[in-house]
Simulated scan of single mutants.
Amino acid sequence: MADKITERDVTHIAALSRLKLSAEETGMLGRQLNDILLYIEKLNELDTTGIEPTSHILPLKNIYREDHTETPLDRGAALSNAPDKTERFYKVARIIE
Rank of each mutant, 00 (worst) to 15 (best):
I40D: 06
H56D: 11
T71W: 02
T71Y: 04
L19Q: 15
L43V: 10
L33W: 07
M28V: 06
I36W: 11
H56I: 08
D47A: 01
V10Y: 02
D74A: 14
E70R: 06
D84T: 05
K61D: 13
G30M: 14
T6V: 09
E24Y: 04
Y64G: 02
D9P: 01
T6M: 10
T48F: 12
E70Y: 07
T86V: 04
K20F: 09
Y64F: 12
L19M: 15
R75D: 13
P53T: 01
P59I: 01
P59D: 11
E45Y: 05
I51E: 09
T86R: 04
D47P: 00
E52P: 00
E45G: 12
T11I: 12
S80L: 13
A15H: 08
N34H: 02
Y90Q: 02
S55D: 11
K42R: 12
E45A: 12
T49V: 02
I40P: 01
I13K: 06
L38F: 04
E24N: 06
A78E: 08
V10D: 02
I63F: 15
A14I: 09
T11A: 07
N62R: 11
I13R: 06
A14F: 05
K42P: 00
I13C: 01
L58Q: 07
A82Q: 15
I51K: 08
R75A: 14
L21R: 03
E70H: 04
D84M: 05
I57C: 02
L37C: 05
R75V: 13
A77N: 03
T54L: 14
G50L: 02
D84P: 00
A77S: 06
E52S: 00
S17I: 02
L29R: 05
E41V: 00
P72T: 15
E87D: 13
R31E: 08
I63P: 01
I13E: 04
T54W: 08
L33H: 01
K61I: 12
S80N: 11
D47G: 01
I57W: 11
I57Y: 12
T49P: 00
H56T: 14
R8G: 02
T49H: 09
S17A: 15
E41D: 14
K20V: 09
Y39V: 10
A82I: 05
N44P: 00
L19C: 13
N62C: 08
D67E: 09
I40R: 11
T11L: 04
L79W: 09
D35N: 08
L73V: 15
H56K: 04
L37W: 09
D47I: 01
L60H: 05
A82F: 07
L19N: 11
A14G: 07
D9R: 06
Q32I: 03
Y39M: 08
E41Q: 09
E24P: 00
N62K: 11
E87G: 10
G50Q: 02
E45M: 10
T49R: 08
L60V: 14
Q32M: 10
Q32S: 10
T69K: 13
R8Y: 05
I5D: 01
